[in-house]
């Protein structure tokens, strides 16, 4: 019975999906073109009595169309979904790894030194709760470049979970293991490399996983503001086009990419996990 747990869960998931899509499809009003339209009606967007959320069949059709040619580029406002996601990933990963390069060493410092912890704690406590988008105007003014400003916003939002988790993980390394390093006369660098880093790695990876999740949440909003390219801009652009089918499709793509990012980091976390 236990072996079939996954299989049963899969069946249940599919049933739930089918029920959900069926209800959605049934709830969508049918489009019926009746008679001649006046010129005004044509200008106002066709014969639909009321704009409605597209049925799943339309979304699936759209997804097929988009995914069969994801990398086309037909001008500034008409790029394939692959290109848009590519831009977003580029911004997220750039900002994210810049943040990691800063947060992990500083987290180490804070975790190792109670003085640094006490000195830096007020800054962290004030800066951390600031919504990343609140930095946007300042970033645009200082950096004078919308692309770099979006990256900066990702940087600032992903730094905190990594910084705090690294500090927490480093400070929480078991005294016994630190004593092993001390009794073997390991220098500061070797202690960090042989003992502290592997001991704190699972906690650090947890922080990195939280950060990538937040970064992916924030990029959509940031791109809606800065415009030009990216999945966030795409959503907003399709909304302006009143193409709700594309909006629903891109929402699903955002979820899918977020899931893949999280899965990748979960896999990395398993690599550094150890059992006591």
């Amino acid at each position: 019975m236990l072996a079939s747990l996954n299989a049963r869960a899969l069946v249940l998931s599919l049933v739930l999906l089918a029920v959900f899509l069926g209800l959605w499809e049934a709830a969508s009003p049918k489009q019926n073109l009746s008679g001649e339209l006046t010129e005004y009606e044509l200008l106002m967007g066709g014969a639909e009595p009321k704009a409605a959320v597209p049925p799943p069949s339309a979304v699936i059709g759209k997804a097929w169309e988009e995914l069969s040619n994801p990398f086309y580029d037909a001008g500034p406002n008409d790029k394939g979904i692959g290109i848009q996601i590519g831009y977003s990933l580029y911004r997220v990963l750039t900002g994210y790894f810049l943040a990691a390069a800063l947060a992990i060493p500083i987290g180490f410092l804070i975790g190792m030194s109670p003085l640094m912890y006490k000195a830096l704690d007020p800054f962290i406590q004030v800066l951390r709760p600031i919504s990343p988008l609140a930095w946007m105007p300042l970033a645009l003014f200082v950096i004078q470049d919308s692309q770099a400003s979006a990256i900066f916003v990702i940087f600032i939002c992903s730094i905190w979970p990594m910084l705090i988790n690294t500090a927490f993980g480093v400070a929480g390394v078991r005294k016994d293991w630190v004593n092993v390093a001390r009794t073997h006369e390991l220098g500061a660098f070797k202690t960090a490399w042989i003992v502290i880093l592997p001991a704190a790695a699972p906690t650090i990876l947890t922080g990195m996983r939280i950060s990538i999740g937040i970064a992916w949440l924030v990029i959509v909003a940031a791109e809606m503001l800065v415009g030009g390219t990216g999945i966030g801009y795409y959503v907003w652009n399709e909304w302006n086009n009143l193409d709700l089918t594309s909006v629903v499709f891109s929402i699903l793509m955002i979820g899918l990419v977020g899931m893949l990012l999280d899965t990748a980091f979960a896999y990395c976390a398993r690599l550094v996990q150890y059992q006591e």
Partner: peptide
């Protein structure tokens, strides 16, 4: 004064590094 490799220690809780 301070730990040294001249004095080796075995603790009750083994003090092995679990990731090695």
């Amino acid at each position: 004064s301070g730990p040294s490799l001249d004095r080796g220690i075995v603790f009750q809780n083994y003090s092995l590094l679990p990731w090695l």
